[in-house]
């Protein structure tokens, strides 16, 4: 039997710190997308609350906290990170394992906003994008999911196949922000 070695999406690339900003990889224990069936949105939210203590997130918002989070992920879909979703939720929604599909990184530190401002055509400054807010938006030509998870911390996700490009573009922007002092 072959001894398989599992590699994370950003294996060998992270963490990296440039100036006051650190980019590191996050490996949530599980990731599952939830797409409620027509008319089942309220029932799904109640079941999610009962099973995992967080409701189905509103558009552009997330619920829960570090370790168990539900992020609005696109039209009619949320992503649950950190916990294995209770199987009884299949009554109300289509559940899809996304565990191996996404690269998840954390951009943390004073100036993280300035780094993202170079790559994302959406206003992610604190006054308009608060903790728990999330967007699906372009990040350097990639379809990203960006969530503010702390005062100066963002979670950024792209398809796993784009992990190296994501790290390259974020590092380039981090260096450019740092060079301005």
């Amino acid at each position: 039997m072959a001894d398989l070695i599992s590699l994370s999406p950003c294996d060998g690339l992270l963490p990296v710190t440039i100036g006051s900003v650190t980019l590191s990889e996050d490996l949530p224990d599980a990731m599952t997308s939830l797409a409620p069936y027509a008319g089942q949105e309220k029932a799904l939210s109640a079941a999610l609350e009962a099973a995992h203590g967080m409701g189905f997130p509103a558009i552009n918002r997330s619920t829960g906290k570090a370790g168990a989070r539900a992020i609005w992920f696109s039209q009619g879909m949320a992503l649950v990170q950190g916990v294995v979703v209770a199987p009884e939720l299949t009554e109300f929604a289509a559940l899809t394992d996304q565990g191996d599909a996404w690269a998840v990184v954390r951009l943390d530190g004073d100036g993280a906003e300035d780094v993202l401002a170079r790559l994302v055509p959406v206003d992610l400054r604190r006054q308009s994008f608060k903790r728990g807010h999330t967007v699906r938006a372009e990040l350097a030509h990639m379809m990203a999911s960006i969530t503010r998870v702390g005062p100066d911390a963002f979670q950024v996700m792209v398809f796993r196949s784009m992990a190296r490009t994501l790290v390259h573009d974020l590092k380039t922007a981090m260096a450019a922000v740092h060079a301005r002092g």
């Binding site: 558009i59 696109s74 039209q75 967007v135 699906r136 938006a137 372009e138 379809m143």
Partner: peptide
């Protein structure tokens, strides 16, 4: 089509 966003 909001290709780079929500997919709507």
């Amino acid at each position: 089509f909001h290709e780079m966003g929500c997919g709507a």
